[in-house]
């Protein structure tokens, strides 16, 4: 094993949560199919196919399940802003934060913590009294509040509006299978874009972080 880069990019809590949720749904559907196949085979009285495993039956490691479940519990916890976030809202928030000259690490923390009171924002932004005035801080707080939807937390973290755009883009002639694929594809692009946002805007923050470490 060789670590090529221990800190290639930073991830927001929301991205990690969506990734873990995808993984979990994947596990659940897989164990369901495995269960169904087993039942069918038993019903038919046939022996399981010899040689090679069924592609649907992939054993899931204990360690992965543990951290997956525990991390989802933490990230979707009551006091976390993640259940109220969507990719579009986060992008909007980042665009809104652009004029304030914040570092990438500060923006990441604003997304992760969603500070809704001034003292918390004070703690996040270094030397805030020199960099921002009270009006600007209130603006940031209202940006954060706008970025949180008060609606119901979504079951699997996929923004319904994204799905609708995917449908619209495909047009009515696309068949159901195609739609499913594009939906998926489109969704992945959003994740990539988000990550690109992170790496793009505050390039050289790894350097900043090193300074912090010292």
């Amino acid at each position: 094993m060789e670590v090529l880069n221990s800190r290639a990019a930073l991830l927001s809590n929301y991205e990690v949560l969506t990734l873990l949720r995808d993984l979990e749904t994947d596990h659940l559907t897989r164990s369901k199919t495995a269960h169904r196949i087993k039942k069918e085979e038993e019903g038919a009285g046939s022996l399981p196919a010899a040689g090679g495993k069924d592609p649907n039956v992939v054993e899931i490691s204990e360690n992965l399940r543990t951290i997956e479940v525990e991390a989802i519990q933490y990230l979707a916890g009551e006091l976390q802003p993640t259940p109220q976030q969507t990719p579009a809202k986060i992008q909007e928030l980042l665009r809104g934060l652009a004029p304030y000259n914040l570092t990438k690490a500060e923006k990441l923390q604003i997304v992760n913590i969603a500070p809704q009171s001034a003292p918390v924002l004070w703690a996040i932004i270094e030397e805030v009294e020199d960099r921002l005035n009270i009006d600007q801080m209130n603006e940031i707080i209202s940006l954060v509040q706008n970025s949180l939807s008060s609606g119901q937390p979504q079951a699997n973290g996929i923004d319904p509006s994204l799905q609708t755009t995917a449908w619209a883009a495909n047009g009515p002639e696309a068949d159901a299978e195609g739609d499913a694929f594009y939906e998926d594809d489109d969704y992945m692009n959003v994740v990539e874009e988000l990550q690109f946002d992170d790496t793009g805007e505050g390039a050289g923050v790894e350097g900043d972080l090193d300074v912090d470490d010292d």
Partner: peptide, 9 residues
């Protein structure tokens, strides 16, 4: 809080 690490194995 979370980072991406590139690992070769």
């Amino acid at each position: 809080m979370f980072v991406l690490s590139i690992i070769k194995d």
